[in-house]
Write a protein that binds this DNA or RNA. Structure first.
Lengths: 242, 242
DNA sequence: CGAGGGTTTGATGATAGTCAAAGTGAGTGG
DNA sequence: CCACTCACTTTGACTATCATCAAACCCTCG
């Protein structure tokens, strides 16, 4: 019923590092099951000390923080292959919430086994640290755009990043990718109001840089979008998959 | 001449986890020397693949990113005990630059030894991952304030955080701590202009919440400052020291 | 057909950015 | 010891980006 790690559809994507048989076997044992959730389902709550961690296998979701005044900051968008819940395992408590945007299926791991898994191979421990360091890296980029770019650059930046991530996961066909989020989500990710996001999006559309509707995003001119964003395109590096 | 880890002045601060003799000894061997730098000295450059990593022993500094248009985003302020350069070790390249604000002395570690050190004990590997996860956690908080709070809340938030960090390091006496940064640094950390930061700072001063001059920060009313920031005060947890 | 979630548009106003210039204080050199 | 410079802070005036408010529009769904 559940996907065997041996047949994991993610692992075959070129973006993911190869695994040794041994690692594969250990990961398989670490995996305790699968979770299928409907759109809108909360997966982890900020401040919670969740007993489980996950890897997104299919579907998309959001990480976000809610401030005392009720404002929401979207930390990032969750794509297949993302490891979820590391903070709870390492720090005993999540710094943000996670929820499913589409229907999702997640590989479930038991926190009680996490330490053993971490210890089971130095390479895997390294992988986990790599993931944490990479998150930090990307968050720094995000912080820089939210702090420094104006609305049109920020939105262009976000879509370039999103599109590139999707490409590495094989989600893009003919310049089109699934993007099942709301304008409000993008607004909350970039610290912009919904109205302003909408109007800025309209400008990008008018400039023929992208089209986004019906949960589908089409990038017409990635290079020009990157120019609007005033960003340097980064090389894509292979990454580990847990 | 250099500080022996056994006599490390940081380790005795209650905020830092105890180390076993074995860990202490391994850390000692990992440490390859000390670096003393003057204010303004660049320590690591964004994009560089530095051969060394550091732990801040004394002094303060900045992590920041520079955008193509020349704008600068300060990622955070570096305090004693901070581990610097993990990204280069894990990802092969720094996502941000680091520079000294005051005179600093740094423990130097060789990147070539990093993997061995990481492997030398699971507890240490865990510590390193813990640090990465914690950075991610704090960065998420920062992103939320830059994205969602207005200037006065954001600045109040920043000073509460800074003050609390300083307290854990024993840097506060009578509500006063060293804070050797410029208004421009704070502005760049929060995505605000220098002028607006200055005027907002003046408002906080007029409200008798804080005083900051001569590289010295005095918090008059931390609770009220936290109220202005609309933040919940977090419990302080012990943390590892590398 | 009405309800509800999401998107779009217009109008208005405030927060924050930009520009410019003056003030302050430490450090330097004549 | 007194200009003079330089880095940083402060203030005022003006501008604009972006938030807020409100309402219409569009689609899907029951």
């Amino acid at each position: 019923m559940t996907t065997d790690c041996k047949a994991c559809p993610l692992r075959s994507q070129p973006i993911f590092d190869d695994m040794t048989q041994d690692e594969l076997e250990k990961t398989r044992r670490f995996k305790s099951g699968e979770l299928a959730v409907d759109p809108g389902t909360p997966i982890l709550m900020e401040g919670s000390n969740a007993p489980q961690l996950y890897t997104a296998l299919r579907g998309m979701g959001l990480r976000y923080k809610t401030l005392p005044d009720g404002n929401r900051q979207v930390i990032n968008f969750i794509f297949p292959g993302d490891f979820i819940g590391l903070q709870a395992s390492m720090l005993g408590e999540m710094g943000h919430s996670v929820e499913a945007t589409t229907h999702m299926t997640l590989c479930v791991f038991d926190r009680g086994d996490f330490f053993d898994f971490f210890r089971s191979s130095t390479a895997r421990a390294f992988d986990i640290t790599w993931l944490a360091a990479t998150e930090e890296h990307f968050l720094g980029d995000t912080l820089a755009t939210v702090g420094q770019r104006d609305a049109i650059s920020a939105i262009a930046w976000a879509f370039v990043r999103i599109f590139q991530r999707a490409e590495t996961l094989g989600l893009v066909r003919n310049g089109v990718m699934p993007f099942p989020f709301k304008q409000q989500d993008v607004a909350d990710a970039l610290g912009l109001s919904l109205v302003h996001t909408n109007k800025t999006l309209a400008r990008l559309r008018e400039r023929q840089l992208l089209a986004w509707s019906d949960n589908t995003l089409k990038i017409h001119d990635l290079a020009e979008l990157a120019t609007v964003a005033d960003m340097e395109l980064e090389a894509v590096k292979p990454r580990p998959l847990i």
